[in-house]
Write a protein that binds this DNA or RNA. Structure first.
Lengths: 159, 159
DNA sequence: TTCTGTTATATTGTACGCAACCTAGTAGCG
DNA sequence: CGCTACTAGGTTGCGTACAATATAACAGAA
């Protein structure tokens, strides 16, 4: 029966789709308090670690298109967390830098990861470790598999 | 160090976020051929199984807002896959039904799940079973955990 | 130097996803 | 019947995502 075929991969894919949205719902109240969205938060995490970066580096770090990143950075700039300026050495590339306000935000964001870990894993600190490893490994396998087959598709499309 | 704290839950969350987009990228070429997006495909899956349903039932089945579902259904109607009409018994509720064209689409969509399974898991049929169970279980645990803590948050917000 | 191809980013258009709000229809109660 | 509360969907506004296209700057060859 057709529905047998459906259930296997459908069950996984729908769970991944649902999990992502449920996770965003967990982040939302925490990030709202900081005035950030999740992709903006990821951008700030990158900048808190590296202090600055080009648009291309940010796109590649978050696997995002310039069509997503470009307006996102404009909004972060409008919020006063970053500044953007073209490099004199190469006027094509735009360098993003933290402002004082952006740097200060890191302190407020310090509690976010732990609070999310509580939502996503469990409150039992001991159990957290086990689940963390398991989840991470399984997610990595799936990601790796998808990326591999995407590359295969893209290579095939050229021929 | 702050980055120790960050890495734990960040590593998981970013993987979930990335995995969802990578999965959508795998579906995209397959669904493009059918003239569907992934949420539209999920809607059609529901209708292929149940033949019809109210907007509320679809929202609840896919965990989507009316703000998402309502325009999505309009687009499916514009594509000729479904029709919408208000029930005479209760003029508030809108019933969605497959058209002939919508029903016919199921046949074309039959190969999608298997092809996705190949991208997401592996081509080795035997290995697929193991990975499937593992992934499903881990995703369910995470989903369950997030939903539980969301309900706790919402209950706390009332008080 | 000029032409050509490439690179880095920006813009446009379409479709989610969700919060907040709106509206019409229904139900219950006096 | 008239009032109120509730329910089912729809609308608006904002922020992603991403394909497709555009633009300006750079780099290398003729």
């Amino acid at each position: 029966m057709a529905h047998e075929q459906l259930t296997l991969s459908f069950q996984l894919c729908f769970r991944i789709y649902a999990l992502e949205r449920e996770l965003m719902a967990a982040y939302r109240p925490l990030l709202d308090a900081l005035g950030l969205t999740y992709p903006q938060y990821l951008t700030m995490l990158y900048l808190w670690e590296h202090e600055k970066g080009t648009v291309g580096q940010l796109c590649s770090a978050l696997s995002l298109d310039t069509g997503t990143m470009s307006p996102l950075l404009k909004r972060l700039e409008a919020s006063g967390f970053i500044t953007r300026r073209r490099l004199r050495s190469d006027e094509r590339t735009v360098e993003v830098t933290l402002t004082e306000k952006g740097r200060d935000l890191e302190e407020e964001a310090l509690s976010v990861p732990e609070r999310i870990a509580g939502c996503l894993l469990t409150n039992d600190k001991e159990e957290q470790g086990r689940r963390y490893d398991e989840l991470k490994q399984v997610l990595d396998q799936a990601l790796e598999q998808l990326r591999t087959s995407r590359k295969a598709r893209e290579a095939a499309a050229v021929n």
